[in-house]
Amino acid sequence: MEIRIDDLTGSQVIELIGEHLQGMAMHSPPESVHALNLEGLKKPEITFWSAWEQDELLGCGALKELDDQHGEIKSMRTSSLHLRKGVAKRLLEHIIEEAKRRGYRRLSLETGSMAAFEPAKRLYASFGFQNCKPFSDYIEDPNSVFMTKEI
């Protein structure tokens, strides 16, 4: 698996982000969807990676710099064709390593509270993420789970 910084212009990546946004909209009320669209992911404080096997897109993930010591994981998504193959685990490892390289002391994320998000929550918990209060600009929301990890 090759993980590389992506400029979000390729058709496979655009499709995967579309799939991600549709999935979030399907499982969360509109006011509780915090997934970023393509333009949101192109902001300078966000680094976006895609994971590939030859010419096939496996998944994606992003890291948003909240400040010089705190990052947020965004847009973690595995292609529906590659679920349960370790793609998300490998992307999460990559993002954590990059956060450490940048000198962050904390890494946080927001995900849904519904059953559809259980696999993601289990993955994050297996890496030592723990539930926390809302961070950054988030507010308390029964449809959201906030998690953080000191690194």
Rank of each mutant, 00 (worst) to 15 (best):
E39C: 04
L57N: 01
T148F: 06
E39K: 15
E19K: 06
S136P: 00
W49R: 02
H34M: 08
M76F: 10
H20E: 14
N131V: 15
E45A: 13
S28G: 01
D68H: 14
R102I: 08
M26Q: 13
M114A: 10
K121T: 03
F127G: 09
K121N: 03
F48W: 06
K85E: 13
P30H: 12
I3A: 03
M147W: 11
E53S: 12
E118H: 05
G112I: 14
L21G: 08
L81H: 10
G61R: 07
E118R: 14
A115K: 15
H94Q: 04
A62I: 09
E72C: 05
Y124G: 08
P44S: 14
W52R: 00
K133T: 03
A62Q: 09
W49T: 01
L36I: 01
K149V: 02
E65L: 13
I46S: 05
W49Q: 03
S80E: 15
G128H: 08
W52F: 04
E97P: 00
I46D: 12
E118M: 09
G71A: 06
E118W: 02
E140S: 13
D7C: 03
G61E: 13
E118A: 15
M24Q: 11
E2R: 14
E150H: 03
P29S: 08
G10I: 01
A35S: 15
M76Q: 11
Q69A: 02
D67I: 11
F117R: 09
G71E: 11
P119K: 07
L91V: 15
K100V: 05
K121F: 03
F146Q: 04
E98R: 07
L91M: 13
S136F: 08
Q130H: 08
S80C: 11
K89N: 09
S28R: 15
Q130D: 05
K85H: 07
G10A: 13
D137T: 05
Q12L: 06
R84G: 02
T9Y: 00
D137Y: 06
V33C: 15
E118P: 00
G23W: 14
W52Q: 00
G128Q: 09
M26L: 09
E110C: 01
D6R: 01
G112T: 13
K149L: 11
R122H: 11
L66Q: 03
A120Y: 10
D6P: 06
G23C: 11
G86M: 07
M1E: 00
H20C: 14
E56Q: 14
S113P: 08
I14K: 10
M76H: 04
L92Y: 08
C132V: 04
H27I: 07
H20T: 13
L8I: 02
E110N: 03
H82D: 05
F129I: 12
V13Y: 01
W49I: 01
E15Q: 12
K121A: 11
Y104C: 10
L38V: 08
K74C: 03
